[in-house]
């Protein structure tokens, strides 16, 4: 095994870990940043996406189409959840945590009742390549590219479109937005649905790397949750990127120096330490420092 392979392996793992966090957390942080709700059922939304993608794939749809279907299906599930439940808990962080945790239990148990404990699979496409005697899957890099593309798309949606401007107004001052004719309820429903659609796409993407079961979501919710809390809501998208850069770095180093289990635990530990220093998350911390620098 050559040194070049060893070095590339670290870089590869860093991007792989980042892709995992970015994909798992993107929908969650959008909902948290825009509406002050942490959706603990986000993993179950991903599970729904994974099942839709796998079912569509086995029914003959090409994988990209299956993944888009996962996004659409999860988005529609999001509309239903928002109308029935989430709507009543905006900007109530603790209540929303408990309620959505309950939802996550209901959805995963319902999936278990309906689909049984059997598992589904999707093949991992694109094969592999080797560097310095190490073999690497191409698909992991595709995951990273898709994660980046999704984040850019969401950023552009909220930055440039009429919907995005109305959504940011509704977030900053819902009463004034309503007085300007913005239908804030509709904006919230759509934003929640977009967050769920991102979860569905992520579920469809991960369906090609992991086995799908009713408890599929549990693999992702804790990490996504930590990433979101670390990122903070001051600037959701930048927060997500900062948190993923930092946590993936810690995880990559810890799992190579020690082992993958230590890598996993190190994410929790490093998030804990970071939150002691930056209680409102990285994006809030950076915004404050910038504001202070501007004052000088």
């Amino acid at each position: 095994m050559e040194l070049s392979g060893q070095i590339f392996s670290w870089v590869y793992q860093y991007f792989d870990n980042m892709a995992f966090l970015l994909l798992a957390a993107s929908g969650l942080i959008l909902i948290y940043g825009m509406m002050g709700v942490i959706n603990m059922a986000h993993g179950e939304i991903m599970m729904i996406g994974a099942y839709i993608a796998a079912s569509a794939f086995h029914a003959g749809a090409p994988a990209p189409v299956a993944i888009v279907a996962a996004g659409v299906g999860a988005g529609l599930a999001g509309v239903v959840l928002e109308r029935l439940v989430i709507r009543h808990f905006y900007n109530q962080l603790l209540s929303s945590l408990v309620v959505t945790w309950g939802l996550s239990l209901i959805i995963s148990q319902a999936a278990l009742l309906i689909l049984g404990p059997s598992i589904m699979n999707m093949p991992t496409p694109f094969g592999s390549f080797s560097v310095g005697g190490f073999s690497f899957g191409v698909y992991r890099m595709v995951l990273f590219a898709v994660a980046v593309a999704l984040i850019v798309a969401v950023w552009a949606l909220f930055r440039f479109t009429a919907f995005g401007i109305a959504a940011r107004a509704a977030m900053e001052n819902p009463r004034m937005a309503a007085a300007l004719g913005v239908d804030t309820k509709r904006i919230y429903t759509l934003t929640f649905a977009i967050g769920c659609a991102l979860g569905g796409i992520a579920g469809g993407m991960f369906a090609q790397t992991a086995t799908i079961s009713p408890f599929f979501g549990q693999n992702y919710t804790p990490m996504a949750f930590i990433t979101v809390v670390m990122g903070g809501s001051a600037n959701a998208i930048l927060g997500l990127i900062y948190a993923a850069l930092y946590l993936a770095g810690v995880q990559t180093v810890a799992s190579n120096v020690f082992n993958p289990y230590v890598g996993y635990v190190s994410i929790m530990a490093s998030a804990l330490i970071a939150l002691l220093v930056m209680p409102a998350g990285i994006s809030d911390f950076i915004q404050r420092r910038r504001a202070r620098a501007m004052e000088r």
């Binding site: 401007i165 900053e172 001052n173 937005a177």
Partner: peptide, 29 residues
């Protein structure tokens, strides 16, 4: 608002984190 009632509140309540152009775009909706 859509029927044509416009409101300029006490304290102005412009969207502070958004640009002037974006504030005007909201008004035009």
């Amino acid at each position: 608002a859509r029927l044509g009632v416009g409101y300029v509140p006490q304290g102005r309540e412009v969207f502070a984190r958004m640009t002037v152009a974006e504030n005007l775009a909201l008004g035009m909706r």
